[in-house]
Simulated scan of single mutants.
Amino acid sequence: MHDPDTLDDYSWPVCVTPNCNRQLWVAEATRWACRPCEDKTTARITELPALFRQLDTTAALMKGASRINGGGSGSRTAPIPPRLDVLNLVGPGGVAARLSAIEDSWRAVLGWTVAPWRGNPAEAVPGLATFLANNLLWACSSYGEVGQDIDDLRRLHAECTALVNDERRPGRVQIGNCPVRVGDRVCWTPLTATAASHRVRCGGCGTRWETLGEWRELRARQETVLAEAAGVAA
């Protein structure tokens, strides 16, 4: 698979997994993906069924839950809205479908018949994971497209793990415009902040505000610029 036409064309084989590209060991020279990538992928595949069960339980509770209000009257609030990001993974087009697509491509290369669908996603995921784990060594050794599949499995595992751990990226809010003067004009680039950091940086002029005092100064300078603009307009 790595045979060059001439010695001048030869370059040492590397792992085909995106963002790896590590030179293969001598003992790996006939492989497409390196053993570290295989080992990490095996661990991810093994963990996916348990991650799916946790997500499936969370989705079911959020989709059908309703709460009794605190007043004791027995009336019910509206159902809690479902987490669409969770439902997208546990539903028909989620984890099970993405694993099934990889299995189908491997079976096609091996010349095996396409496996019948294994029931609902909760029933299918364990069987899909078992197939992929059992045939990963073959894929790393003999399937030239395995690098993309390894990367797909990495991203799927990361998505599931983030949702199980409720790792939501904090949103950004607008906090006005940059009041710093650059030459004869005010920068006035829109500024945003996030609850995850007390630092604000202007993408236009590069000015930073990091402390409580600097935040107060920022607000005061914004108000000054707005007041000057209002005075000119009047």
Rank of each mutant, 00 (worst) to 15 (best):
D3V: 12
T6S: 15
L7G: 00
L7Y: 05
P13I: 05
V14G: 04
V14I: 14
V16E: 03
C20F: 06
Q23C: 06
Q23L: 07
L24F: 10
W25K: 15
A27V: 10
E28A: 04
A29H: 10
A29Q: 12
A29K: 11
R31W: 15
W32P: 00
A33E: 06
A33N: 10
R35W: 06
R35P: 00
R35V: 14
P36E: 09
E38S: 02
K40F: 11
T42R: 13
T42Q: 14
A43H: 14
E47D: 14
L51Y: 05
Q54F: 05
T57Q: 10
T58Q: 12
T58E: 13
L61P: 00
K63L: 06
K63Y: 08
A65T: 12
R67G: 00
R67F: 11
R67P: 00
N69A: 12
G70I: 12
G72D: 05
G74C: 06
G74D: 08
R76E: 10
A78G: 00
P82T: 09
P82H: 03
V86P: 01
G91W: 03
P92I: 10
A96D: 09
E103T: 02
D104S: 12
W106R: 00
R107G: 01
R107L: 06
A108N: 08
V109K: 08
G119Y: 08
P121G: 01
A122D: 09
E123A: 15
A124N: 01
V125P: 01
F131C: 00
F131R: 02
L136A: 07
L136V: 04
S141G: 01
S142F: 08
G144D: 15
E145Q: 10
I150T: 02
D151K: 04
D151E: 14
R154W: 07
R155G: 04
R155K: 15
A158S: 15
C160E: 05
T161P: 00
R172T: 11
V173I: 15
Q174V: 06
Q174G: 13
Q174F: 09
G176V: 03
C178R: 00
P179A: 04
V182C: 11
V182F: 03
G183T: 06
D184S: 10
R185M: 08
P190G: 04
A193W: 01
T194D: 11
T194E: 11
T194I: 03
S197Y: 04
H198T: 15
V200S: 07
W209V: 07
E210V: 10
T211D: 09
T211W: 04
L212D: 14
W215T: 05
W215A: 09
E217T: 15
L218K: 03
R219Q: 12
Q222D: 01
T224K: 12
E228F: 01
V232Y: 07
A234S: 13
